[in-house]
Design a protein around this nucleic acid. Structure first.
Lengths: 356, 356
DNA sequence: CGATAGACTGCAAACGATTGCAGAGACGTT
DNA sequence: AACGTCTCTGCAATCGTTTGCAGTCTATCG
């Protein structure tokens, strides 16, 4: 069907081996034949068969990215960044959707390795540690966003403790003392870490932790709404809510709309991870940005490094953290001098009181 | 490294060919050896090497899906549906992002074909018709959502004329006579077809078409905002806006929020294609659903059909339409008996003041 | 001028599977 | 007993590359 190396060789009246060497540029052929062959190959429209090549070399120029889903905006941008980076290097990215389902993850994993992918970036479910570990002997693997504690794989993580700390501190600096937190499952790294950042900021500010203000769980928008209601129904409801789980955001917004709670006048709202519509929303929603682009880029860097350093890519470092940053938009505002009967409790004093 | 067929054959003391036949279940081996070999293969953890197999058979059990981007919610659900369907059939889906860029599309296309994919579902940019046509001789191809006029490829399309007609008629039935339309580029099929549906509904209702109410172009949220402003600044602004291009929706919402135009009281809003947050938005946004799931499923059906019918999958039909349907939520409301000079100019007057 | 290195080239064996062809038995028929 | 048929198995070629090894040719040096 298509033009093979043999055809090129015949047309050029050389052996297949010479043709191969000339076209792959091993420097073992004379300048002249090399040029002649590249020309002929071009004329004939020859394109090497990656399958045959792969069979011989054990490589495929394929790199896989395995994520949970595509609805998460962070995964979208990561996928696009990674694809662009790899493409520039001549790799084809294979994007797979694992659905956060361990069994499917396991299946996909073996399929991929069987296809002799050259590298893998995976957001692990955390339930297939053993398999991942075994696979990492056959192909370079980098974990992204989540850690699999059962492995010692190189992992690129968002700095969730820092991000949550930053966000909470921002709210505290605005004078908020009762800050509701809606956070992800506590059996995930990010769930735990975000909670810890929240706790740290509170402690640092000398604010006592109030358990009724914290809701953790596996969120969908509905649960987000439920939690928001619970928070707002409290005798002393929070003056700010930190939604540290992006799945929950929609639900929270719904509830505030239903109850005609004005943001940010009646309630400050801070979310984690950006969504394309956040800055178009009215009011534009302030967020803690987990740095998806940076995460993706770093993951690619690490993967390439491991792919180069055949086998012994062990640099000692196992975990990389990508800084989070606060993006202030319009959904958070300073609280009006709350309990103090005094005057002029503006920002400076609010910030000060926060430290105590 | 890994267990090969040869290893299995040796362990079973048979030839490689027998092993192959037994394991692929050709029925050319005795029941006994077949069972024995499957057992041994399992014990040894043998997994066939798809690359070697592919070299011989010319197949890869890989099917590619090439889309423009992942931010479009429709593409997300299509990708997930297609992946699930294919997976169940033992195919691995290769998801590629073309960025709506003809050159990148072309590149990706050749890479994919070189990798001997077994099938391809593509949302064509429309600029690589010749290449697609040529490729379709080597691998079954189905176009999705967009047609490439330069080819006669089988194409699965949303019924955009019908969808736009349905939406417009809905607004008309609610009493709207001045309906703004924000629609995509007129050099895309969907752009043209949605406009035509709008026009048809208007004509059928005996409403004269007003050119100032229609904006077509290549949209990003910013442009959506600009168009919304132009529409609302009109001397006689529309009482409803049909945003038939999902990229523009965010911009339109932004403008209505800025101007304190209440939806649906002051302005009815209808959008095309669903977004996960539409039903959580306040008010929940009514839409014309293009039937992404159905589109994806049909595309898979057609592709599988072509993959089965080696070569002559030509059924005569070249174009499939998937019905659109209206999903009424809260962003459209009947217009108050419009031209009557009666009292109760409350809300509409607010909208009016907004324009001035 | 002969030896020798050096630069190219070709032969053939891989890589791991599939598959046409033919041989080896087992069995039934005449 | 001879023959044909049928079922199962193995040999070897093949898919399109890469690559170790050995051979050819030219040029250089003593």
């Amino acid at each position: 069907m298509s033009v093979t190396l043999k055809d090129v060789a015949q047309a050029a009246r050389v052996s297949v081996s010479t043709a191969s060497r000339a076209l792959t540029g091993t420097g073992l052929t004379s300048e002249r034949t090399q040029q002649r062959l590249t020309r002929i190959a071009r004329e004939l429209g020859y394109r090497p068969n990656p399958i045959a090549r792969g069979l011989k070399t054990g490589q495929s120029r394929l790199v896989a990215l395995l994520v949970h889903n595509l609805t998460n905006a962070s995964f979208q941008v990561m996928a696009e960044v990674i694809q662009a980076r790899l493409k520039a290097l001549g790799y084809q990215m294979l994007l797979c959707i694992g659905g956060d389902d361990p069994e499917q993850e396991s299946d996909t994993l073996t399929t991929l390795v069987d296809h002799r992918i050259d590298g893998l970036i995976v957001v692990p479910t955390g339930k297939n540690g053993a398999q991942l570990k075994a696979l990492s002997k056959e192909v370079p693997i980098v974990c992204l966003v989540r850690r699999d504690d059962a492995t010692d794989l190189e992992t690129v993580l968002a700095d969730d403790p820092q991000g949550a700390y930053l966000g909470t501190r921002h709210l505290i600096e605005l004078g908020h003392k009762r800050i509701g937190l809606i956070v992800g499952r506590q059996d995930t790294t990010s769930g735990r870490e975000r909670l810890s950042g929240y706790v740290r900021a509170l402690r640092e500010a000398g604010i006592a932790m109030d358990g009724t203000l914290v809701h953790a769980g596996h969120f969908v928008p509905e649960t987000g709404a439920t939690c928001a209601r619970k928070l707002l129904d409290l005798l002393r409801p929070p003056s700010a809510i930190f939604v540290a789980n992006h799945e929950a955001t929609l639900g929270v917004l719904r509830v505030t709309a239903e109850r005609n709670i004005a943001i940010p006048d009646d309630l400050s709202l801070l979310c984690y991870e950006d969504m394309p519509w956040f800055e178009w929303h009215r009011p534009a929603i302030s967020i803690v940005d987990n740095g998806a682009r940076d995460l993706a880029n770093l993951a690619v860097d690490r993967l390439l490094h491991r792919m180069d350093a055949k086998g012994n890519g062990n640099d000692g470092v196992r975990e990389y953290r990508v800084g989070a940053r606060l993006i202030k938009r319009d959904s958070c505002r300073p609280i009006e001098s709350a309990s103090k009967p005094k005057s002029s409790k503006s920002k400076s004093s609010a910030a000060k009181s926060a430290k105590v």
